[in-house]
Amino acid sequence: MHVYLPIAEMPVNVLVFLGLGAAVGFLSGLFGVGGGFLLTPLLIFLGIPPAVAVGTGAAHIVASSVSGAFTQYQRNNVDFKMGVVMMAGGLAGTLIGVEVVRLLRKAGQFDLALYLIYVTFLGVIGSLMMIESLNAWRKIKAGSAGRTRKSGQHSWVDGLPLKMRFHRSKLYISAVPPAVIGMFIGFLAAIMGIGGGFVMIPAMIYLLRMPASVVVGTSLFQIVFVAAFAVLLHAVQNRTVDIVLALLLISGGVLGAQFGALSGEKLRGEQMRILLAGLVLIVAVRMAVDLVVTPEELFSFSGVQGGR
């Protein structure tokens, strides 16, 4: 069964893309990650033009993060004030990111930049996850659970101006670091077609020292708006949002995410985490290989606007 994509301008197999959405949704439900960092490269491997993969990926993130944010909101796990501050930075970062995408496409270097950023991020995050999960697994096997964290440390963050009180997070800190983190993530989100949760959550925990309970909800809350803004900008500036492709991925994704969440309650976390880290590293290696190996065809085309 095929359907013709209006922006990518190609017919695709409906089942393949529903399946891809479901598989990525399953993983995101299982691990509580957005899955954009897997979806965008997989779309590219399946022949979707990179710029369309990024623009359409953003729409997929809106759907999956709205879903998660709503659930977190019901559990009162969202610090709205912090979310709004981060969002302000995030929107600015997205604006810059989409403009950078446009300039890079014009210069013919977007694919290269995308690959480099992906290889770097997936390589680093995948390695860290692998090390962390292997250690955790070893600890569980050795029978020593629980971890120790230093608290009450003061850092350079405390010296910044524009201090605000964030009640839900029980923090009194400058608004600058959350805004800057938001901006950086917004920039990455626009270029990579991701939500950025996997970068933002560690930043919120270790840099802002937010309580773990509100981290996921707050990050999802601001991702919804930043991703929505990215969709809008990609649609207006680059014309690279394919609504048919997005709906296929989202349909598969919402179903997959529910099954993933259900399975997540039954499976052993550490082993699955090792698998996820392995998957992330495989994608990183595959993209790195594409950059280094002599291509069969040195020449390539690009149209003047739209998907091609």
């Binding site: 999956s64 929505a228 809008l232 349909s251 919402v254």
Partner: peptide, 14 residues
């Protein structure tokens, strides 16, 4: 329209 559809899909799933 894309954003509204995506948000609706996500919300209805939730």
């Amino acid at each position: 329209a894309m954003i509204v559809l995506a948000a609706l899909a996500g919300l209805s799933a939730a």
